[in-house]
Amino acid sequence: MKKIAQLLAAGLSLAVLAGTASAQVVGKTEDQIRWRQSAYTTMGWSMARIKANVEGTYNKDQVIEASNVIQAIANSKLGALFQPGSDKGKGWEDTRLKSEFFTDKETLGKVAGTFGKEANEMAKVAATGDAAAVKAQFGKLGEACKGCHDNFKKKL
């Protein structure tokens, strides 16, 4: 399972090769939307794995694996897949990105910075094996995710 998580994290990092908005644009808009949807689906699965561990029988190795995947995605320069105009269109499904993503740079910087910080901290805390500390940090990470959802993701 550890190898699968490492390969998945490496694959996601390769899929989002580009850096910030100044990086070379890779792929068509539909591809960019699909790639970022895939990354967020993988992150959601990893969050669910951590949640299952903090609410049920705790398995340190599973939490470390899931935390490392989240950290890899958070540090993968995923922002390069948010090119102007990618708030419209379809990847695997219609994008739910709000157009405010491109205009509210102050909020975007704050929520992106918080998410990166909390994802990195989640990996550090997971490595300790302290279930109580993991649960507390998982709450902070969830709040960081919510910050972006609340500001930049359309509700269904």
Rank of each mutant, 00 (worst) to 15 (best):
N68W: 00
G19N: 05
K140F: 07
Q32H: 06
V125F: 10
T20K: 07
A23D: 14
K154H: 13
A131T: 02
F138N: 03
L81M: 13
Q62P: 01
V134L: 06
G44H: 02
N151K: 14
M43K: 02
G85R: 03
M122C: 03
N68E: 08
K110M: 13
K2L: 10
G109I: 12
L14G: 14
Y40W: 15
A127Q: 07
S99K: 12
E30G: 10
S86R: 05
G116L: 05
K155M: 13
N53V: 01
A132S: 15
N53R: 01
C148E: 05
G142Q: 10
L141R: 03
Q6V: 14
V54Y: 14
F101G: 01
K155H: 12
A66S: 06
A48H: 05
K110Y: 08
A133C: 06
Q37M: 13
A112F: 08
K155L: 13
A74N: 01
H149M: 15
R96A: 13
E118W: 01
L17I: 11
K51E: 14
E143M: 11
S13K: 11
N151A: 15
Q62W: 02
K135H: 08
P84C: 08
S22T: 09
E143W: 04
G89F: 00
S38V: 13
M47R: 00
K77Y: 12
T57V: 12
A119I: 01
A74L: 04
I50D: 00
S86H: 08
W35M: 07
K146E: 12
L14H: 08
G89C: 08
L156D: 15
G147P: 03
S22F: 04
T20W: 03
F101E: 05
M1K: 14
W45S: 08
S38C: 11
D130Q: 09
T57K: 09
K2P: 05
T103C: 10
S22H: 08
A131Q: 06
E93V: 11
T103E: 15
A112T: 04
Y58T: 07
K146M: 14
Q62N: 14
A80N: 07
W35A: 02
F138V: 04
C145W: 06
T95A: 12
S46A: 14
V63I: 08
K51T: 09
D31E: 15
A52Y: 01
Q62F: 03
S76R: 07
K135M: 09
L81Y: 03
M43T: 03
V69R: 00
V25Y: 02
L14E: 10
K28N: 10
G89S: 07
K90Q: 14
V26A: 06
A127V: 06
A127R: 01
N59I: 15
L81V: 00
A66Q: 02
R34K: 15
M122R: 01
V25L: 02
E118M: 09
S38K: 04
L141I: 08
L7R: 09
K3C: 05
